[in-house]
Amino acid sequence: MNRTERISAAAVVVFGILVAAYSRHYLKLGFLISPDAGFLPFAVGVALAGLGALWFAASFRSEAVPESGKEGGGAGEADPADAPVPALSRLLPGILLVIAYAWLFERAGYLVSTVLFMVGWQKFVEREGWLKTSVIALLSAAAMYALFVHFLKVDLPTGTWFS
């Protein structure tokens, strides 16, 4: 297996320890016969740390036995040397757009943010022309309005910037 797996396994161990520490520090553990709020999170934290360690160990063992790659499906192909670097050219703008949508949603209202999101997506993720972009953006905003506000009467924000 590759380095990514090992780093992730180590991260799980650290995360488990943090969870256990938080539960011990901020929550009451109680006892086995009277578990309190921190009991389950503490146990889960300890379990995560242990499972992470097992995963870490397993990644070494499978390296020693290269044949195991074939039963793990595609896992064996991913070698640290030729691990395919994910293409960020579409992923990154995609993720940023969703975050921007969440940020704009209550501030600019659902209509404006929906239009901006769709314009952004067509432009930066799909690299479409302006005509197609504006048609898709306006149509989807209109559909959202018709469906959620007009038909389902969902109480959607109209935007704090405008009131």
Binding site: L111, V119, W130, T133, G159, F162, S163
Partner: peptide, 20 residues
């Protein structure tokens, strides 16, 4: 380009006007 901006501005205005 210009067209989309114009449309966007119109949208902004429209949603701003609703409560008023």
């Amino acid at each position: 380009m210009k067209k989309t901006v114009a449309v966007l501005v119109a949208m902004l205005l429209a949603s701003a006007m609703f409560p008023v």
